[in-house]
Design a protein around this nucleic acid. Structure first.
Lengths: 347, 347
DNA sequence: TTGTACGCGTTATCAT
DNA sequence: ATGATAACGCGTACAA
């Protein structure tokens, strides 16, 4: 493309034209109190007229060593994260706090797949990891930058973190709704590393993992145990992605299982909503024939018909806390947010 | 916070330590073919050992005059755009092409509200406006940068654009499904500037506007007219946001209208899905009592029960085209993507 | 309140 | 294949 575009006008040139020093131009933009209001106003309007739209970002960044950008590193691709209502709310929380502090939000996907060479992380002053990146190399790459880091929904020494008490949430939920049921099934999310909808094996059940899903699973199982009930491993399904298509496959398998489970514990509201839909379509009555619970507390779980029992987590607040911590330089603490069981029509 | 962090090691220092010139280090990272494989390998491993993780982004950007980032300017807040499946798919399309070209994706919200001072737009090489920014000032600010721009779903001279033939889609849809119905209602999206769910006035109907919603509305109306049918202005509702809460309010008003409309044309699938849900819950039979159509062709319209008639638009492809155009410097063309009517169970 | 001078870390160009 | 040099545009001491 032929771009005969003239180089943009610089601070120095503006200074020369206006007959002041470059420093004064710089101050007019960055240090208003360093010069008279009159001069400042004059300078700003002249700059506009001459087509100088403020300091060059690169030069400014180079000189100051700061960018004014905070980066949230997602655990997966952009589109996957965007289509997750929970992630959405979290990002909204982060954006709230950043806006209040005149900081911009930068997003980096956590699945390296075909990630660009140009490392965008160079343009951020600090990082919030929202979930462990699917490609662990991304974490290392960014940690090497030696910039402030907060992790959310997972831990990675020696960084500060914000977590949700998934175990306790799952435990309390199960205790609240287990009733007399013995036929319990679990519909998990990414319990194991596979792209298939399937049940997990006894060996896989024993794997030590601190992932969100594992903590929730442990909560379900322990609560059942404490009430002398058992959740057999052959009634634990897992889906690879939090999408209705996968949930639907899994739910159909669950409903086809004999004897049909009376209580279905789903690891996300999205899964639970799908379960409700599929069960209803299959002619089952909820909660008479099957009772279903979700996790997260998204809006739709409340407005759906029937409304879905769930464990509410403070997504927005999680974003607030993570961002505020990063901004305050409070980089050591590890906090855990409480959850709240919400009983609704599906149980 | 006391941060006794040592300044990071620079290219020049590395060069001195390794006994080569800075230029060679630079080449090792950016121009592999400019030096022997041996030396390059040696340099890279030494850099890693010494804690030099590649060129400083700011300095590189300053020197090259490029950032390697392409920015999509959304029409509204991040969270609003993320929760829109159509926007999601578009972004995925853009990201596809950018990744293939080793470019990063930057996102800027289009609602100024409390936008940061630090203008993130300085960090991008080019811009894709996805819908006219809600705050027009953002467009001007970015246009002033004099960098490549492509607009999507709207036009703004003299920039190139990618559009969808909304009028034709709405027209063909209406012709296909209008049948013998005379009681037609429209459920529009942001037809007028208001935050309320309401019907529009005859004066408002006449307003000349090129917005997506208006084009669709014109398509509905003209198709009806061409078949000697009329869509009275008092049966045209509008909602301010593409969220189920608002759609639900509007649908309830529509169903309460007497005589109850037999055909409901919705300007998004999200609205149509809500309409189906509300109508079913109200005990109506679909399509016997009321027929409902959406717009956009999102996945859920297909998988929902009953499946929803809609107008499919090529969201992903729209993203591909916009990004490719920007990269190719093809900044003048205006293209219009065709739509496709998909008839399903709700009609 | 305003100006001077220097360096931030890199890469393009040219020379070797 | 490698090295020397000169910008890129700005912000901050410090001096005036």
């Amino acid at each position: 493309m032929t771009k005969p575009r003239n180089r943009k006008i610089s601070q120095k040139e503006i200074a020369r034209i206006l007959g002041v020093s470059p420093a004064t131009i710089s101050n007019a933009f960055n240090q208003p109190h360093q010069l008279s209001a009159n001069l400042r106003e004059h300078i700003l309007s002249e700059c506009k007229r001459l087509g100088y739209h403020g300091p060059n970002a690169a030069a400014s960044m180079l000189r100051k060593g700061k960018t004014g950008n905070i980066c949230v590193v997602l655990s997966d691709s952009l589109s996957y994260s965007f289509s997750d209502p929970v992630a959405n709310l979290f990002l909204e929380g982060v954006a709230d706090i950043l806006a209040k502090n005149s900081l911009n939000l930068l997003l980096i996907p956590g699945n390296d797949a075909d990630s660009p060479q140009t490392n965008m992380e160079g343009f951020a002053d600090g990082f919030i990891f929202y979930g462990a990146p699917r490609d662990p190399e991304i974490f290392n790459r960014i940690a090497a930058l030696d910039k402030p880091i907060i992790t959310v929904d997972f831990d990675h020494e020696p960084y500060g973190s914000v977590n949700v008490d998934n175990y306790e949430g799952a435990y309390q939920l199960t205790r609240s709704i287990i009733g007399q049921d013995t036929d319990i099934a679990v519909l998990g999310l990414r319990l194991i590393e596979t792209d298939r909808v399937c049940r997990i094996t006894p060996e896989e059940l024993l794997s030590e993992s601190e992932s969100i899903s594992r903590r929730r699973l442990q909560g379900y199982i322990q609560a059942a145990r404490d009430l002398d009930r058992e959740i057999p491993v052959d009634r634990i399904w897992t889906i690879p992605f939090n999408f209705p298509q996968y949930a639907e496959m899994a739910v159909k398998e669950v409903l086809a299982y004999h004897p049909r489970p009376k209580l279905l514990l789903c690891m996300s509201d999205l899964i639970a909503l799908t379960a409700v839909r599929v069960a209803l379509r299959a002619g089952l009555k909820i909660p008479e024939d099957i009772r279903i619970a979700g996790f997260d507390g998204i809006t739709e779980a409340e407005t759906y018909h029937p409304s879905v029992t769930t464990v509410y987590q403070h997504c927005l607040e999680k974003g607030h806390i993570a961002a505020q911590r990063l901004i305050d330089g409070n980089l050591q603490d590890k906090s855990t947010l409480e959850t709240r069981v919400i009983l609704r029509e599906t149980t």
